[in-house]
């Protein structure tokens, strides 16, 4: 499933983080890449999501969430 479809509070494993060039690298730098373990901490306004990566929190707009594929851990 894509990140915007994922439930909150449940650990997920990223299977693919697509995106154009710099976006893909930024996601990897922030810890969102294939194999990463994340949790959707919040559902925010207009389709945005707040993702917990350990103690870190990263907000992604709705369109960015549609580029990240995840599966339950």
């Amino acid at each position: 499933m894509m990140l915007h479809e994922a439930p909150t509070g449940r650990e997920l494993i990223v299977t693919a983080a697509r995106g154009k060039g710099a976006q893909s690298r930024l996601l990897a730098t922030l810890g969102i890449a294939a194999g990463s373990r994340i949790v959707v901490a919040q559902r925010a306004a207009f389709g945005a999501r707040v993702v917990a990566i350990g103690a870190d929190r990263v907000a992604l707009a709705g369109d960015a969430c549609r580029d990240i594929e995840v599966r339950p851990s």
Binding site: A45, V50, A55
Partner: peptide
């Protein structure tokens, strides 16, 4: 090992502040 995400005060505030009804 890596710490598990823990719900913090910031998370609880964001749960309200990032919704459209309060956030906007």
């Amino acid at each position: 090992g890596r710490p598990e995400p823990r719900r913090t005060l910031t998370d609880r505030v964001d749960a309200v502040l990032l919704t459209p009804w309060v956030g906007i």
